[in-house]
Design a protein around this nucleic acid. Structure first.
Length: 444
RNA sequence: GGCCCUAUCGUCUAGUGGUUAGGACAGCAGCUUUUCAAGCUGUUAACGCGGGUUCGAUUCCCGCUAGGGUCACCA
């Protein structure tokens, strides 16, 4: 029997990490076993469904490259559900019951209840082992709002059976739903699939991730500039591990290494820092063109907002610098918004008191700058400048020479080193900035 | 509250009836061409508690505690 697995998201919100990881585990399991990965949209709650969410689920799965082999919407199977329900009623395993409506007790409705044999059910969970429930406390639970409107548990059982689902890999929050679904299965005479309930993803305070407090939608992280490979790699290791010390996995390696046995029993706290680290691992391997295109786009918008003139050539030179300073593209947005890149595109302004190194006088600083300018104007290539300047700085005190130099070039307390700045700004621009700083120094 | 699940560094985790309890992220320290970033090196840090079983339990069993899930005419 070939493996068939599914995820069953409801279109009542954007695709979030939990669902994405469940999708990943199902997808990996299917790929590993040459099986079929199915996405079934559980859209039977018309009041809460939104087209927007429906589309988002597929859009994000596509982005994560977790595309399904088969797709359908539960609403398309209404007839099959109704038929199965009918059969259950006809054989006396379920019955209609006229009761006051829950939302409006003045009205009555005819719900369908399962005739619960009230036995003890034990099922084997691949992750947790045997789990036993006494189902008598479930009583004759409601399986359909009416003969034509089956509820979630009923539809799930019928759909899983019709789709030939062999393994149900889903969140742990469904463990307690399982016995009632098994009851329905047995009433219908269906086989039981293999169950594997995966641990939940927790917020940093170990509580359940709530949509209120944490935005865990995949689209948000995508918009922040996280890379799909990083997200996949991180999510794969949340609640699963290969039993080795390997942490960086390509897609293929993941497929090869994956097994249900490696799934963790306990919940896992989502750690943004580690995700960022993973993202950086993938970011540094992005090819130059892709990286440059993304960075340029972000930079252009960010600088425009600050009213800083755009310089395409200058931006190009900044790429290696940007690459070493960010973990996620969104970091670049903050950096630019904080004015950390302004000085590459426009002249900095100076606080004259900050120009000298802590231990030197304004006169010293002026002299060092004058000498640095001299060196800079008399050498042709940057490597030469660096060598001579470095020698000079070593003689006079590195901080004493290098700090004012760097500050002259950037106007910032924190920035890349002066040699990098000179290389990017060029000799002419560097020279005029040094001159401007010396001018400013006279005011002290 | 009933039922169910879970319990190794702050976090993700490896692991064993006898281990220096391993790795990664974060933290800290040092190094690296002042500062910042990156990188490198080193380092702090864990078997929840109480009973058993056993020559010996972090590991097996029981209880406790704690955390989580679930108890719809939602999915």
């Amino acid at each position: 029997m070939s493996v068939r697995v599914r995820i069953a998201p409801s279109p009542t919100g954007f695709l979030h990490f939990g669902t994405a990881r469940t999708a990943l585990f199902n997808w990996l399991f299917a790929r590993k076993n040459g099986g079929t990965f199915i996405v079934r949209i559980e859209d039977t709650d018309m009041a809460r469904n939104k087209q927007e969410y429906d589309e988002d689920i597929f859009e994000q799965l596509r982005w994560l490259k977790l595309e399904p082999d088969e797709t359908y919407r539960q609403s398309e199977h209404r007839q099959a559900h109704a038929d199965a329900l009918r059969a259950l009623i006809d054989t006396g395993r379920a019955y209609e019951s006229e009761e006051p409506a829950k939302d409006d007790p003045s009205k009555t409705v005819r719900v369908v209840r399962l005739r619960n044999p009230g036995k003890t059910i034990t099922f084997t969970d691949t992750v947790h082992g045997d789990i036993t429930f006494d189902t008598s406390e479930l009583k004759d639970f409601v399986v359909a709002r009416s003969v034509t409107e089956p509820l979630y548990h009923f539809a799930v059982v019928v759909d899983d059976h019709d789709a030939g689902i062999t393994h149900v890999i889903r969140g742990e929050d469904h463990i307690s739903n399982t016995p009632r679904q098994i009851l329905i299965q047995e009433a219908l005479g269906y086989d039981r699939p293999v169950y594997a309930h995966i641990p939940l993803i927790l917020a940093p305070d170990r509580s359940k991730m709530s949509k209120r407090k944490h935005d865990t939608s995949v689209r948000t992280y995508r918009e922040k500039g996280y890379l799909p490979e990083a997200l996949i790699n991180y999510l794969a290791l949340l609640g699963w591990n290969p039993g080795t010390e390997q942490e960086l996995f390509s897609r293929d390696e993941l497929v090869r290494a994956f097994s249900l046995e490696g799934i963790q029993k306990s919940g896992a706290v989502f750690d943004d820092e580690k995700l960022r680290w993973f993202n950086r691992q993938y970011l540094v391997t992005e090819d130059e063109e892709t990286f440059a295109a993304t960075v340029t786009h972000i930079m252009k918008i960010g600088l425009e907002k600050r009213g800083v003139a755009w310089d395409e050539k200058r931006a190009k030179q900044l790429m290696p610098l940007v690459r070493e300073r960010i973990s996620v593209y969104d970091d670049l947005r903050s950096l630019i918004a904080d004015g950390e890149f302004d000085y590459f595109f426009s002249r900095p302004t100076y606080d004259p008191h900050r120009i000298p190194d802590k231990k030197s006088t304004p006169e010293d600083a002026a002299a060092y700058l004058a000498h640095a300018a001299e060196i800079l104007s008399s050498r042709k290539n940057v490597a030469d400048v660096k060598e001579v300047l470095w020698q000079y700085a070593t003689e006079k005190g590195r901080g004493a020479v290098l700090w004012p130099l760097r500050y002259s070039l950037s106007g910032k307390d924190k920035s890349p080193d002066p040699f990098v700045l000179i290389e990017i700004l060029g000799a002419d621009e560097s020279l005029s900035r040094i001159a401007a700083a010396r001018e400013a120094l006279k005011e002290v």
